[in-house]
Design a binder for these strands. Structure first.
Lengths: 207, 207
DNA sequence: CCCCGTATAGGACATATGGCCCTTGTCTTT
DNA sequence: AAAGACAAGGGCCATATGTCCTATACGGGG
């Protein structure tokens, strides 16, 4: 029976231990490598050519998204299972559209993880109901323009229109325009709601 | 050599596996029970009387804080190590003041966890620098009154002053008063900043 | 009994915010 | 060449937000 060769890319020690003990208990899985950050994860992929990568999205230095993009560029057939703490629609969307084949949150069960890995190894997607719901819920995906994203980030930092104008070296009038379209596109009534939605959807993150 | 008898209270399967594999690998630790929610955790404590409890703060149904409070009421000498995803000062503060002896985040190393358990078993506190920093940082802890907390919660849900007035059945004028003192006490300039701070400090949580 | 904290609320006021109108200039796509 | 998206900005205006001052009422602690 063919074993699925798995590479773990996960910075949290405890989470790595968890994955290790769940997966190594299963005869069909063989963990052939573990990386604690994106760069070493990528270079281990180059050397080991695993069947499936299990990837955390929040990594030090470079993000999980970057890892997906980079791996897809070099190895278009790479099979990636994303394992994230965040269930914001934006993270799911970005991960799937970067080329991830599965998206699990860290409250997943062992079976779910196993199923995901097996499916992904066969080239099939694996998205739990929650993830699909979030994606659908996001669907009215009115994309923000780059400038609007910048403005949104400022808003979620608690900056006033005037301050944003100074930050971006534009007139406050222009900031208002951008704020208006951001609110419109996000379905928010004011900047506080926009901030909450942006955080919920994973468009921005705290700290 | 005396073994430390540990009870795990943690709802996430993967996290339980992680704790299990980290701790059971160490000869000085013996896991004598695992619970997936607060109620069963408390009843297992009554039966097993472990030396140390390792507790997650986010649990289904009743919170980790409630577990701490309840256990402290019945067993004043209970030794609790809190393991949380959240590093907001409010969570740390509430956990420590409820009677937790240690506070670790889930990016902790194996050694840290082990040290924490050993210290706590001997009746000593174990708070990493980060946790102490957060506590200190919180210190200008101007307590919000009950009403102000209610108002703050409404604010962080994106409600307008008028809506809050309807929610709480008071005049909008009164809401403004409460909002003002909330902003003042939190050092925020407007409701958006208050929302951000409240989330960062763990005073409220999303979803 | 009086003071303080809390919750309630009115009046007045300055400013921030957000909506609606319109214009200009630069790119890209058709 | 025309159409469309994006960025920048002016003018006008209604309303939301937040502050200051004053006042009433309830409750507990000194």
């Amino acid at each position: 029976m063919k074993q699925i060769r798995v590479l773990l890319i996960e910075d949290h020690f405890l989470a790595r231990m968890a994955l290790h003990s769940v997966l190594s208990g299963h005869p069909q899985i063989k963990i052939i490598g573990e990386a604690g950050d994106g760069e070493s994860g990528i270079s281990m992929y180059r050397q080991l050519r695993p069947d499936v990568v299990v990837l955390d999205l929040r990594l030090p230095r470079i993000s999980g998204f970057d890892v997906i993009t980079q791996l897809r560029k070099e190895f278009s057939s790479v099979r990636i299972v994303v394992l994230s703490n965040y269930q914001g629609s934006e993270d799911i969307y970005r991960a799937v559209h970067s080329g991830a084949m599965a998206y699990l949150t860290k409250d997943a069960s062992g079976e779910e993880l196993l199923n995901a890995i097996q499916n992904v190894d066969r080239g099939l997607r694996y998205l739990p109901h929650v993830a699909l719901d979030r994606l659908a819920q996001r669907m009215p995906a009115v994309e923000l323009t780059p400038r609007e994203k910048e403005v949104l980030v400022c808003i979620t930092k608690g900056r006033s229109n005037r301050e944003i104008a100074e930050d971006l070296n534009i007139a406050e009038k222009t900031v208002r325009i951008h704020v208006s379209s951001v609110l419109d596109k996000m379905g928010a009534r004011d900047r506080t709601q926009a901030t909450i939605y942006a955080l919920q959807r994973g468009l921005v993150h705290l700290e």
